[in-house]
Design a protein around this nucleic acid. Structure first.
Lengths: 225, 225
DNA sequence: AGAATAGTGTCTGTGAGACACTATGGC
DNA sequence: GCCATAGTGTCTCACAGACACTATTCT
């Protein structure tokens, strides 16, 4: 059918849409490019897939390098393969979506001039086709929050219902009734696990602390707005 | 950041999960491999991405070549990039999901020994990691039928509500109440467009004929049995 | 006490499923 | 007439949203 040598050679990269919620905004991790092409422009973090590692492993490796944290939620978003998306050669990029809690501060990547959390509403035009990829990632994240318990991926290990609600309000850009939200998330099977602890971070009655549960999908789904 | 020559070379292919409903079963389009590796085994149709075409275009081209039909629903499913998924070289495959009506019969592909519709329940082990890809495609198709009007992609240009219902029953493997199904699909905004024609294919009162509507998502979604 | 936030109870509207009933064809 | 399938009306239950109300802390 084919043999080495008669196939067109491609470079394969991974690009990461890493999202978090901080300072009342949905933010993406961006790096400023230190070299051509698009030198000085913001871009998604990413890099080449090594010849002996899987594409998924490459994404996990890059994510750990950029954030300094492992174990974050990571899923494939899509593959972007227009012929001229990189002006220098034929590059096919596999994009991944990662959701992170409010991490201290991005560590400077090995080959990036600077890394920073940028509110997605303030992102203008990124290098390559990364604006499209980021848009697709944000849309996927918003959709995933409806029918999976992934809102918890934006929170720390322990969190209150109010903190989780803020995540949903910021990601969806809506306001939710605190009482109905509370009933819904505490009632959904496997969404939250009570720790038995409470905290009083904001004055008022102390709130119970929860950890994420073990459900992979939500029955019934949360409804947006 | 990088330059031609210092990146690991990959081959990039597209693989197609083409599904249809025929003979009361959900069927996938498979080809029997004519060459090593996996000679004689069933595999998903697919092929190399050409150096000057986009990955999406490559998928559409392969789909038209295999089915003889263009304009089918085609969407990216995922990218499979384990280092050893092809025993001969490093190949990254971008998989696509296509949904087709009951087409006459597959035309023999250019480089495939034979092509055939095979009920997915009877598919045993395919070449490469194609069993995994097929499974992912079937799962995606089942999910898509819930919240998009894509069930109509399995029907011809004009169809009755009963024919559409059979599609859902076969894909989901459940039985649905004909009366509630009728009310739901005719009530969903943009799902169906009435043609004004009727047909009496099965005896009984003639059924109205519909074409697919223009909605991209369903409000409210159909619910799986 | 008063303010603030946490959490519960209750009402009401909407929609899904069950299924009786009507409509329209072939025989 | 009978049978088969198409399509509508209606009942009931469950759940989402609105919001009154109670609970527990801080100042």
């Amino acid at each position: 059918m084919y043999s080495p040598g008669d196939f067109p050679p491609f470079a394969v990269t991974v690009d990461l849409v890493v999202l978090t919620v901080r300072s009342d905004a949905l933010c993406a991790l961006l790096v400023r490019r230190g070299e051509a092409p698009f030198r000085g422009r913001w871009a998604l973090p990413g890099g080449f897939v090594r010849i002996a590692e899987s594409v998924d492993d490459a994404a996990a490796r890059e994510l750990a390098e950029e954030t300094g944290v492992s174990g974050l939620h990571l899923e494939q978003l899509g593959t972007y393969g227009e012929p001229r998306r990189d002006p220098r050669m034929r590059v096919v990029s596999v994009a991944y979506l990662a959701l992170a809690p409010d991490l201290p501060v991005p560590v400077a990547g090995t080959d990036a001039a600077a890394a920073s959390w940028v509110p997605v509403s303030e992102v203008s035009s990124l290098a390559f086709d990364h604006s499209v990829i980021l848009g697709d990632g944000v849309e996927r994240a918003r959709a995933k929050l409806e029918y999976t318990p992934l809102g918890t991926a934006f929170c720390g290990r322990e969190f209150t219902v109010a903190e989780l609600r803020r995540v949903y309000e910021i990601v969806w850009g809506v306001s939710l009734d605190p009482r109905n939200f509370h009933r819904k998330v505490t009632g959904a099977e496997g969404f939250l696990t009570a720790t038995g602890q409470t905290t009083a971070r904001d004055g008022g009655r102390p709130a119970a602390l929860y950890r994420r549960g073990d459900a992979a999908v939500l029955h019934p789904p949360l409804v947006r707005g």
